[in-house]
Amino acid sequence: MPTDYHIDHLQHLESEAIHIMREVAGEFERPALLFSGGKDSICLLRLAEKAFRPSDIPMPFLNVDTGHHFPELNEFRDRRAKELGGKLIVRKVEDAIAKGIAVPAPGEISRNKLQIPTLLAAIDEFRFDACIGGARRDEEKARAKERFFSFRDSFGQWDPKNQRPELWNLYNGRLNEGENMRIFPLSNWTEMDVWQYIKREKLEVPSIYFSHRRTCVRRHGQWLPVTDILPPRAGERVEEVTVRVRTIGDIISTGCVESPATNYDDIIAEIAAARVTERGSRADDKASEAAMEDRKKQGYF
């Protein structure tokens, strides 16, 4: 450890995030922490430990399971939640469809949009007044506009043209009945910061972030994993490739990147040299320039 009082950029981001975690615990009655098992939410859990230990983390972990998750991700999610002694709540898109809460459009295979009503129903069910998420402003340009404390009306909707002032490190948590807050402690973190933090804190991540062999097809310039829900189309060649995932979405929309990275340093070097953003490998964001803004307005996190 350095012996001077110099705060480097990771420590600065860490203290900002820990402060926000504590604000949430102080200002809200029924907060939840969205935990998917992905790299950003892994950082959130470490920050929660730093904010609240030796006490229990004073909020349950919530995950919306689309049914299209990578199995490695769910295994990691369940194990990590247990290790931390946290209460993990999982709500499944399948169940929401069965109950008529989420209604797929004819022929709609993607579960991406169906996550929204599933999440809103979970917020309703547990009457959560605040949900902490791992979204970062550098991911996407609609996200670049969002406050740390992002107000949602009683329909779970975000109004980007009417956001609250948020000065210095003062956060306004005022809500009326039925309204809720989405809270993003990692707002100012970049993909690089996340990996540097994971390395510094020696945090375990799901194995699929590292290089492995996977059966894929080449589609729209990306390697997509071949599974029962994503069979190869006529004329597509199935190949064994050495890949890793850079961002984890659903298994049907997450493009894998060819990579030999087997440890944190390899990943950090790879990101430093990258010429596309991490969301460049997510089909859900390519839909249109305002794809993310539109989903967020409907209640996406």
């Binding site: 402003r137 996407e140 340009k141 609609a142 670049a144 506009k145 980007p160 043209k161 707002s187 320039e289």
Partner: peptide, 17 residues
């Protein structure tokens, strides 16, 4: 980053980069 901003060619809210 917002549709309204691009259509009207103005910045409505702060964006972080």
């Amino acid at each position: 980053g917002l549709r309204a901003e691009r259509e009207q060619g103005i910045t409505i809210d702060v964006a972080y980069r």
